[in-house]
Design a protein around this nucleic acid. Structure first.
Lengths: 148, 148
DNA sequence: TTACACCCTGGACTATGGTCCAAGGTCATG
DNA sequence: CATGACCTTGGACCATAGTCCAGGGTGTAA
C-alpha cells in the first residue's frame, strides 16, 4: 500500500515529524486516515501538499497565507490564486527596492571611508552614530509598524 | 533643557513607550541619564539613535544586526568599522539576490497563469503542488530551515 | 515472546519583537 | 495640597514557526 506513516512522510518531504504535526494543528495538513491505534496514515496527495507548503514558504509565504492559498486551490478559484501571487510579487519587489536603497547608502559610505585615521573622519560613523538628525545619508524606508 | 522623558521620546520617534524600554532591555538604547526618582531622560542623540533603529528595521535588519551596526560607532577602529560595513553590504546584496530569484519565479508563474478556468491549468498551483522533487519552474530558494 | 523502532498526546520551551497590566511612586499645574 | 498625567518595575501575554520531552502505546520481525 502506498500509504505512509508520519515518519516516512516527514523523511520524504525533508521535514521533522513535529513539523508535520504542527502543520496539522495549524490546519494545513490532515492525515488521510488513522489506524485504530491512532497512528496517522498519509497518501501521495498529502505528500504533495506538504511539499507545496515547503515550497510556498521558500517563496516567502507565511503559513497563514499558505492556508489561504490551499483553500483557494480547493475552491478552484484560479483568479484569486493569481491575485494572491501578484500581491506577494509586489511585496517581494518592494522589499528588493528597499534593500537596493540600503545597498546604495552603504556602498556610498564605504567608498567615502578611508579605512584608517580618525573616527571623526569616518562617514560611516557620522551617518550612524550621528548626533544630528541621524543617518541622513541613509534612505527613507518603510518603518516597521507601517507594515502590511 | 532639550531633554526628553520616555513618553516624549517615544512620541517623537513614533513608537510605544514599551518598545523604548524593550530596546533598552535589548541593549540598543540607553537613556542619557536618570532623575533621582528613576525617570529616564533622553537627549537628541538618543532620539537619532532610536530613529536609526526604526529605519534599519524597516530595511529588514534584525535587532541583533542593528546592535552590531550601532556597536560600530562605539569602536575607534576605523578599519574594523569599514570591514564590518562591507560585510553588511555583502549580506544585503545576498538578500537582494535571493529575493530576485523569488521574484523571477513568481513572475514566471503569474505570467503563465490565465487567471481563470480550471485549477488543473493553473501553473501556480501546479508548480507548488507538483508530485516530483520538482518545483522545476521555481527558483531554488532557501527552504525554511536552510535559513541563515 | 521479546526487542526495538515507531507512534501517540499534552505540554513546555526556543527565539523574535513586541504589548499590556498591576501596583505603586513622581511631577507639574491650579 | 490635590489632581491627573506621567513614570517605575516585574511579569504575563501575543503571534510565528517550530522543537523537544515525558510517559505511555503499537507494529513488526526474529
Amino acid at each position: 500500500m502506498d500509504s505512509l506513516g508520519i515518519g516516512a512522510l516527514a523523511r520524504k518531504a525533508g521535514v521533522r515529524i513535529d513539523t508535520v504535526r504542527y502543520y496539522e494543528r495549524s490546519g494545513l495538513l490532515a492525515p488521510k486516515s488513522r489506524l485504530p491505534s491512532g497512528y496517522r496514515r498519509y497518501g501521495l496527495g498529502e505528500l504533495a501538499r506538504l511539499r507545496f507548503i515547503r515550497r510556498a514558504q521558500g517563496l516567502g509565504f507565511s503559513l497563514r497565507e499558505i492556508r489561504e492559498l490551499l483553500a483557494l486551490s480547493r475552491g478552484r478559484d484560479v483568479a484569486r490564486v493569481k491575485r494572491t501571487a501578484q500581491a506577494k510579487l509586489a511585496d517581494v519587489e518592494a522589499r528588493i527596492a528597499a534593500l537596493q536603497r540600503v545597498r546604495e547608502g552603504l556602498a556610498t559610505l564605504i567608498a567615502a571611508c578611508p579605512g584608517h585615521g580618525d573616527a571623526a573622519d569616518c562617514p560611516i560613523l557620522q551617518a550612524l552614530g550621528g548626533e544630528g538628525p541621524g543617518a541622513s545619508q541613509l534612505p527613507h524606508s518603510p518603518e516597521p509598524g507601517a507594515e502590511r
